Amino acid sequence: MLRLVSPFALTLIGAILFGDGAYIHAKAWLAQVLLERAFQTSIATGHPVKPWSWADTWPIARIEVKRIGASAIVLAGTSGQALAFGPGHIDQTVDAGERGVAVYAAHRDTHFRFLRNVSIGDEIEITRSDGRHFSYRADASAVVHFDASGIDPATRGFELVLATCWPFDAVTSGPERYVLHATLLGTGG
Rank of each mutant, 00 (worst) to 15 (best):
M1S: 12
L4R: 13
S6T: 14
P7M: 09
F8D: 02
I13T: 14
G14S: 10
A15G: 11
I24W: 03
K27D: 00
Q32C: 04
L35Q: 07
L35C: 00
L35F: 04
E36L: 06
A38K: 03
F39T: 03
T41N: 09
H47Q: 15
H47F: 13
V49H: 14
V49S: 09
V49P: 00
P51S: 04
P51L: 02
A55T: 10
A55L: 11
A55H: 11
A55P: 08
D56H: 11
T57I: 00
W58L: 05
R62N: 03
R62D: 02
R62V: 15
R67V: 12
R67L: 10
A70L: 06
A72I: 06
V74A: 12
Q81D: 14
Q81L: 14
A84S: 14
A84L: 13
G86R: 02
H89C: 02
I90S: 02
E98D: 15
R99V: 10
Y104H: 11
R108G: 02
T110V: 05
R113M: 08
L115G: 00
I124V: 14
E125K: 14
D130W: 04
G131K: 03
R137L: 08
A138I: 02
A142W: 12
V143P: 03
S149G: 07
T155N: 08
G157R: 12
F158V: 09
E159N: 08
E159L: 13
V161E: 09
T164M: 08
T164H: 06
D169W: 13
G174W: 04
G174K: 00
P175L: 10
L180P: 04
L184N: 07
G186R: 06
